[in-house]
Design a protein around this nucleic acid. Structure first.
Lengths: 335, 335
DNA sequence: TTGTAAGCGTTATCAG
DNA sequence: CTGATAACGCTTACAA
């Protein structure tokens, strides 16, 4: 419970001015090596730790970035976050984690708080299409990276996966396996991730001369219970309409769908084939073996931070870039 | 890309002193209602946002707390984190998320960074028994809550689950089902979580007159591949020694064990019964149906933050409390 | 090479 | 009720 010493205390102890202490600690070139060593030693002994808040105030840089995600409970995001953080630690940054629970109001609130806290940059996985509040960071000029969702704003930098392509691959694979009645189980309808995956689904159908059947497309939220509920509905329509395969917009939905299928006494994949999206770790469990479209989650996180660094560095790196990552279909046992 | 106005700008615009603006914004009692309204309006129009860094400097309070966890990839922690965060948001706090990847060095580094950033409090799920560096926060007097692991330090407040009891329940249940050769698959050996769960295991055995067989106890790290590897070893010892049941120190280990058992062509639970610990969401998947000892993860997070608030509030709340939560055995299909 | 002093954006203490 | 002004802990011109 010792009181934390300030630079003032160190200066007094060492019998020099604040400036000299500051110089010693940040090893400025213009300082006597001897006194520097002496001061550093004293500072250490006193347990001096520079106050980052004060530093932030004068340097106008906090070595802090905000990360806003919609659902920390979806293993996809922790994996991305880990990538971001590993890159951040290396660069000496600390992360404010903000989980919105898919709540746009909370997202907006966080945005404001983070700006007030003077973060140097922002990484956002937007949770709603209601992007009006996303103009806040953009207009304020703070360096921002959007991940997993594209934002239509002149100079927003986005890192996303090619959702359309990924979905297309998944559905075409299903078609290749002979399926003709393929359902789409989506998350929040108005989210671009969902829209694009639906788009890929539609494109795959039409490219293969299959008719789009509205009754086979249902959306909810990107959660397991939603997948369960929707799949159950899908299975309990009149017999003839039942799909033989399902493409779910993420793995959580797929996991829910799997459960509904089994509880309806049907077999996977012989009665119903299921394909997900994300390739969360649990998709590969031997008991699950979910066929899914993989995203490079960890690397996406790392890339996001590195790109943000470039932006923050202020170098000639143009914002407004859209970085598109490649999905890869991982075929396992549910299809 | 507008420049962010300071209180100075607002003051100039409103034709009053900084002090008055500050008073208006923090609605002090001693201010004219009219001018207050006028100033607030002007501030809003200008898009003024108080600089939290500057506020932190003078108020000596940052409304920020640090959260240090070992593995964000283990669904247990995101769930706890969500609880913490929900409570934090409500109280107007923001969380620094620090993931250590079970790395003590990184934990120590984070500790120092967080102190420098002047967090108001700390919530730590320690990742190693090498607690020497944990003296840093304790000695510095910063309010700290330890979760999921107990720290032997005079005035550390810990929120943990009764690991011994939980493990005991699990193993006694197994014994009740007729198992006599029960293996223990642990995480990092020196971590109290692991030690206590092992202790519960041992107690259950001796309380039931079963002999402790060293060859049935193996530890690795709290990860799935570790569980897989250990289980595989266990199964490939000479036939007679093979266990008929396994108690894994967490669900990830159990999931790995499940996989090894199946890959060895054995049936669950008839050949080998498996019980885990944590009850992560994926344990309840119909395909998994893992029997496990449940922890109130989300509530534990909320409680952690609320307790921290009490501590930070400086009220008469004594630190040094150990809060013990109750585990509950959830019997599903792997036992 | 070192010291002095101004300033970062707030809040808080005094006077008025 | 309001206005100066001194902190908060640090960095950085500018002087010495």
């Amino acid at each position: 419970m010792t009181i934390i010493p300030t630079i003032k205390d160190v200066a007094r102890e060492a019998g020099v001015s604040y400036a000299t202490v500051s110089r010693a600690l940040n090893d400025h070139p213009e300082i006597n090596e001897e006194t520097k060593k002496r001061i550093v030693k004293i500072a250490m002994k006193m347990g001096y730790r520079p106050n980052a808040i004060a530093q932030g105030l004068v340097k106008k840089e906090t070595k802090t970035v905000g990360l806003i995600i919609p659902d920390i409970t979806n293993p996809f995001f922790p994996e991305v976050a880990r990538g971001i953080e590993d890159a951040a630690v290396e660069a000496g940054y600390t992360i404010f984690l903000c989980n919105t629970n898919w709540n746009a109001k909370r997202e907006e609130r966080y945005l404001n708080v983070l700006l007030q806290k003077q973060v140097d940059g922002l990484i956002i996985a937007p949770s709603s299409e209601e992007i009006s509040h996303l103009r806040i960071p953009l207009d304020s000029g703070i360096k921002t990276i959007f991940i997993s969702r594209v934002i239509n704003h002149a100079n927003s930098t986005c890192i996303i996966i090619d959702n359309i392509l990924g979905a297309k691959q998944a559905v075409e694979y299903l078609i290749g396996r002979g399926h003709r009645r393929i359902a789409f189980i989506g998350g929040q309808e108005d989210i671009s991730t969902n829209r694009e995956r639906l788009q890929g689904y539609t494109q795959a159908l039409s490219a293969n001369g299959l008719e789009f059947d509205e009754s086979l497309v249902k959306t909810g939220s990107f959660k397991r219970d939603s997948g369960y509920f929707i799949m159950d509905q899908l299975l309990n329509t009149k017999e003839g309409n039942r799909p033989t395969a399902v493409f779910a917009a993420n793995d959580l939905l797929a996991l829910g769908a799997l459960q509904a299928v089994r509880e309806n006494g049907l077999d996977i994949p012989s009665d119903i084939a299921v394909v997900g999206f994300d390739d969360i770790e649990f998709a590969s469990l031997p008991e699950i073996q979910l066929t899914t479209v993989a995203q490079p989650k960890y690397d996406m996180g790392k890339l996001a931070f590195i790109t943000l660094m470039e932006l923050m560095g202020g170098g000639g790196y143009s914002s407004g870039r859209k970085i598109l990552l490649d999905p890869v279909l991982v075929v396992r046992k549910t299809s």
